[in-house]
Amino acid sequence: MNAWHALIGQLPFEWAQYAFMHNALLAMILVSPLFALLGCMVINNQMAFFSEAIGHAALTGIAVGVVAGIANPLWSMIPVAVLLAFAITLLRHHSAASADTIIGLVMAFAVALGVVLLSRGGGFAKYSSYLIGDILTITPGEIAGAAILLAVIAGIWLIFFNRIALTFLNRPLARSRGINVWLVESLFAAAVALVVTVSIPWIGLLVINSLLILPAAAARNMARNTAQYHAIAVVVSLLSGILGLIGSYYWNTASGATVVLVAMGFFVLSLAGRIVR
């Protein structure tokens, strides 16, 4: 950590003098590749709406924590998000309704329940920071948490990636090759729930899904194979995270939303490139 502060402190920029910017930058460098990796598979499996719902379910997670008197709401947000992710995954296969209807219902329920519980006695305002997020107040302990999360997801991606990819390409095909498709789908849903939920206090639940979707969507416009798809998404995500964070310092804006606007810029460029080609 000290080496990091020393390194960034050398940079000849105004923002590089502040320790909170060093912390935020390191956190951004750790979480943006995560979003890129997950996002690629979220898009391949047409789960953009799913991850959006998981983000909004954070409201219920926070509320459950408040009602149960848990000091750090993260410990109630994670189980609630994972539980809802499993519920949606199960309902998708065991209901006559289409996937987007199921997800829409679950999301509406989670948001309404969260708002009702949190607004009791008119105190919703103090939770509004979760809507926008704040990466500038991130602590070294939280950065360590982000590093562990990156290691866990990278581990899952090294061991299970081929099975996840084949399951999402075609479920019965994956089954014919002996893949436990239920395990793979549940594992992926839990990974998305975990990463989205842990990042909400930093990025904000209103824009978090865009960070998952945009780098992968931009990469899809350019990639010629799976390796390029992931590499481009990681680069776009890292660049958006770093440029967005620094931009937010100079413009005095919310970091999460600024990062999303930069990522959107990359997406538009990739789209233009695709059309020109």
Binding site: L37, N44, F161, N162, L169, A219, R224, N225, A227
Partner: peptide
């Protein structure tokens, strides 16, 4: 999806993650 024939075969017969190429 940007999945090549090579990616498809590798994902089915190999454990080496195809995002590494």
């Amino acid at each position: 999806a940007p999945i090549t024939v090579c990616d498809l075969f590798a994902s089915a017969v190999s454990r080496r993650p195809i995002w590494l190429g």
